[in-house]
Every structure is written in structure tokens, then in C-alpha cells.
Design a protein around this nucleic acid. Sequence first.
RNA 1: GGGCAGAUGGCGGAGCGGUCAAUCGCACUUGGCUGUAAACCAAGCGACCUUUGGUCUUCGGGGGUUCGAAUCCCUCUCUGCCCA
Length: 368
Amino acid sequence: MFTITHRWQQARSGQLHTDHGLVPTPAFMPIATRGSLKHLANSDLTTIGNDIILANTYHLFLRPGIKVLKQVGGLHQFMHWTKPILTDSGGYQVFSLARLRLVSPDGVRFNSHIDGHEFFFTPELAMDIQAAIGSDIRMCFDYFPGYPANRAQVEESVRLTTNWAERCRAVHSVETSRERSLLFGIVQGSTWPDLRARSASELRAIGFDGYAIGGLAVGEPPEIMYHVLDATVPLLPAEQPRYLMGVGQPEQILQAVKRGIDMFDCVLPTRNARHGQVYVHTASQLVEQNLSLVHYTKLSLDNLSYQTDSQPLDPLCDCSTCTSGYSRAYLRYLFSVHEPLAARLATVHNVSFYIQLLRDIRINLALY
RNA sequence: GGGCAGAUGGCGGAGCGGUCAAUCGCACUUGGCUGUAAACCAAGCGACCUUUGGUCUUCGGGGGUUCGAAUCCCUCUCUGCCCA
């Protein structure tokens, strides 16, 4: 169930209800692909105030596998995480592991990126795996051909995605008698407004608990992405959650919220943290308190300029990294000597930055 | 005192007459990461020139052979190992 509590022009804030609790929206979901948010313990996420994480069907299927997931009672039990989990379907891996797969109408033949083992991934299998994981929000197995793609490829992408969405819907309807999980459809169509419209229309006809927009933030200029959102969001049900998959940079999230998006996920805060790049508020923001997180920049901690910089990463941040007295100089040093603590401290900060950003957006919807 | 081996760019370490401003690794500098095959990848890393490119100074010091030397010869200095 999804309830909208506030609206401001196209933007809205609300609550997504799941068996593992409420998710205030707009929401950002940090990525725990393999059932672990890299470098963080659950207690870190609790401290940060994170409400929901994303895990990946494809990766958890390879290891630990369906059998183990069932035996240990699902991913919540396994990783001892009590809040909601959304699972991506593996559709993104069809794209990112393109060299290791072959797409057909029935499904996708994959070779494991781990040991080369071949298997056949279908919408039904994707749903079985997500059931074994026990995720609160499950995604349909979709297909998109990358960017740029020609019209024929994108039409094929929409056709397969709709067909597979029907099959996912069928499996999900049968198996969710006891547990209540939500199933989201994924709109494809790349940059063609009419194909986006066709995809949205076909998915609405099937009926889902929420609608995701996929196939964006895959190399196209941000302006193109905003245009696609302008054309696509109005075609989605007004009272149901909308999820922009894989986005993105903080300003892209702001732009998408303005256009009516409720949910986000992205590897950037976690991956960038591991790579020594941290998001911080800029000085101008100190002056314009009201505008809060609109003003930010990214620091490359390996830059020589931080060698003796005694400031915290972000004086305006209340995360444990920034309030514990760790300096930019120390973080830079830890990265330079490859101490694991560097990635941990930076990840705590970046995830906090995103969670704070979304919290501020929810509180001050009109300001953004 | 004698014998042998060796000295190459910040470090390690290739090269052993021309295609060498010198493979490679590390370090260093700067970029990039968008539903995570990513604690990763890329570029740069003697000086100067606006460039595809060009010029200049380099391979312990000095001298020599050669059209041409980091590569061959002589010598000096230093280092390591062995014998006294």
C-alpha cells in the first residue's frame, strides 16, 4: 500500500507500507547487491537512519543460491536485516553482463560471471528467486538493450518486457497468498516517447503495485533523462509509487523528485566512497541554510590538496565519520595506504549524505 | 691484498650496438564511475615546443672505439659476494 501525504506541483511525499515496515518517500535505497551493503554493518545503517536496501536476484541466485536462501528462511533472516528489502530482478545484468548472455523470447541464457556455468534465466525463475529471498518489493524481469539503441531494438525491449511482466505477474499472484510482497513493473522505451507510452500502457493493463522507469542513466545526457521523465511520469498511475532505477547524482534525484518520482537506488554513494570520492555541502550552503543540499560538491580524497587538511569531510554532516573528528587528511592517508577503514568511513558518510538529502527533500518538498 | 659480480628514470627491475627518452611493476599526479563482474578502471609520469609531431639533455664519473653506445673497450669511484 502506498499513501501520499504531501504534494507540491508534480512532487509528492508519502509512505510505502511493507511487511517489514514503512518506507517514507521520496526514498533512496542503498545497494546491498549480495546481501551486504559493502563495508557497513546493519548497525551502521540503523545509525544512519536508512529505511530500505536493494539486493540483487542474479547475484544471490549464484551464491548462496535458492536452496540455501530457503533453508535459512530468506534474506532478512540470513543477513539479520529487519527493515524492507527491494530486489532487482536481474534485468540489469542482462545489460551489464551482455558478453555473457543470449536473449531469446523465453528468457536469457547466462554464463555465470563467477565460474562460467551456464543457466537459463526466465521471468519465472526471477520470481522464484525473489520469493526465496523473501523481498518486500520485487521487480519484474525486464530487458533493455543499452544506450544508444535503434528503434527496432527498443521495440523488441518493450515487447519482451511486457511479455515477461505478464509472466512475472502470473507467478507472483499465485505464490503471495501468505506473505505480502509488492511487485513492480518496469517501463522501457529508451528515449522514444511513444514507446515509453506503449510500455507504460501495457504494464498498467497488467496491473502492478508500483511502476519503475528503467533504461535511464545508462550514458545518455541528463537533459535527455529529464525529458523522458517529463514524458513518462504522467503516464503512470497517480496514486502508486514510482521508482527511477539506477539514479543517480544528487541533483538528478532532485530533478526527478520534482517530476514525481518516489524511489531511487544507485551505486554512486557506495562505489564512490570506496573510490575515495565523497559528497559534501559547499560553503555557499552555510550562508543559504534554507537551500540546504542543493549545493554540494564531490571531493576526490586522493587529491594532494587534502594532504594536511584538518577539516572533517563535511562540517555540515552529522554522520559518525564527520562528527568523530576524522580529518580529510587522515582519510586521504587511509586511502593512500589502502586501509579498509577508509572505505568504511567514506561509505558511512556518503550513504548518510544521500539519506539526509532525501530526508530534507521529504521535509521541505516545496524548497526543492 | 687477490678474485668475481654489479652500478639504468622516486624505488624495484628489463634492455646488452641502431626500431630507446628507455618494457614492466610499485609509488606518485589527475580523471572517471549512475537498477555493482568495480576496495575498480583510465590517462599522465626527463625538459621544452601549440599539435599527428618535433627539439634538447639522460642509463655511476671521465675517456675511447663506431656512421651510430644504456649496450663494446680503458680508467676512476662506489656496492655485493668469495679467497687471504
